[in-house]
Design a protein around this nucleic acid. Structure first.
Lengths: 221, 221
DNA sequence: CCGGACTAATTGTGATCACAGTTTTACGGC
DNA sequence: GCCGTAAAACTGTGATCACAATTAGTCCGG
């Protein structure tokens, strides 16, 4: 467990990524309680790096900490929270897409096409985890190109908070509930360097996804 | 240094607030390097709670961590970063103001008037720290009323990142560089329950402040 | 068969130490 | 007097322990 040092990534970063993935893909259910030691045992590390990772996730509101007994839990899903997250995402992410459209080259197009093929494959197979990973990869490969670190970080934080909601959608409506995405539409706009088209495509993509989540959340809190 | 327990706030939270204040008021200069042990010594606590607080501040991008030697520093001010932060603030904060306008009562009005008087007093005296504290208090007393936790948290994060820039403005143009705010205008709109008026007032308030910061940053990187 | 009290296990927090890099300081050779 | 090198100081990271508080569990009386 002692670190080899002079390595690349610290243990607490790996732990962060592990928990982040678990949250985004919904492997840890919203509302469920977690603890430093239980997470540490599960990931086969000492509680210390978990503590660091959790602190970070709490700051990003991906984990919540009960103010009275100071215990950790995954934030539960409320319609109000989802509404605010949707609003914020609908502002930042289309903006990032528009900026990226101005920096597009054939390499990016090819990369996005490859990822989108993976998204479609995951949908066809009904592979939830793979779909979520690929969908995330698509959006952030695009946002990466915007050259806007601050906004990209905001989008990352929002995505992390929305993650658990997504899993609920799959749980309720099944894997084919999210079939229709606007990725192809976005790629077409990017090819033409059409910033406004990319903005609209991503906005529509988010909007449709969020609508499904809203419906799922309202169905049962 | 051992905690009394059953108390209200943990040490790492107090440390967080202390560093946060130091950053917002610009007592720690942008670009300056800090360390866990030096902060701990300065605040008369052990390195442990500082570590927790710093982890949180790094997640909020109020502190930066050098990816190669893992050392801590206050993020330096670039025109690009400021532009993105401005854009984000100009979206969230007016939205919060508009929502708050719908929940306004005479208590809030009175509270805001009192705080605004303090702001003006600080400006008259040229008291930079007091101005910044009061200005922050004004905005967040307002945003508190919006009933939008997620958006309010976003605004808080942005404010924290912008804090160091503000101090630079004072350093360059003097304390009277920010005299004209739109707080009175905002209060008038709130009294009338005019959500759109509140939105415009806060947008103008931010816009003017940001313009001054932009000018100051461009003057010298 | 159920309920309440006492014990045991688990929780987050803080302190302290070890370790290995990195940076700074100091010193010695030319 | 100056430069390069070795030692000392300082850095973040991880492990481990102590502590008090809360939760879970268990056992006994009715």
């Amino acid at each position: 467990m002692r670190k080899p040092l002079a390595d690349q990534t610290a243990v607490h970063d790996q732990v962060y990524e592990a928990i982040r993935q678990a949250l985004i893909t919904g492997r840890i259910a919203p509302g469920k309680g977690v603890s430093l030691r239980s997470l540490a045992a599960e990931l086969n590390v000492s509680p210390m790096p978990v503590r660091d990772a959790v602190r970070r996730l709490v700051a990003e509101r991906a984990l919540a900490i009960n103010p009275v007994n100071k215990r950790l839990s995954v934030p539960s899903l409320t319609a109000d929270r989802l509404e605010q997250l949707s609003l914020a995402r609908l502002w930042v992410e289309p903006e990032l897409a528009a900026r990226a459209a101005k920096n597009t080259d054939t390499g990016l197009i090819r990369q996005l096409q490859a990822i989108d093929a993976d998204v479609d494959e995951a949908l066809r197979l009904g592979d939830v985890d793979r779909y979520m990973t690929a969908n995330h990869a698509f959006h952030f490969a695009l946002y990466e190109r915007a050259g806007a670190e601050v906004l990209k970080a905001m989008a990352g934080g929002l995505w992390l908070q929305v993650g658990p909601f997504m899993r609920v959608v799959f749980g309720r409506v099944g894997a084919d509930g999210l079939v229709a995405d606007r990725h192809a539409e976005a790629i077409t706009a990017l090819k033409a360097g059409d910033a406004d088209g990319a903005r609209r495509a991503i906005a529509a993509d988010l909007s449709e996804g969020m609508d499904k989540m809203r419906a799922a959340v309202e169905a049962s809190p």
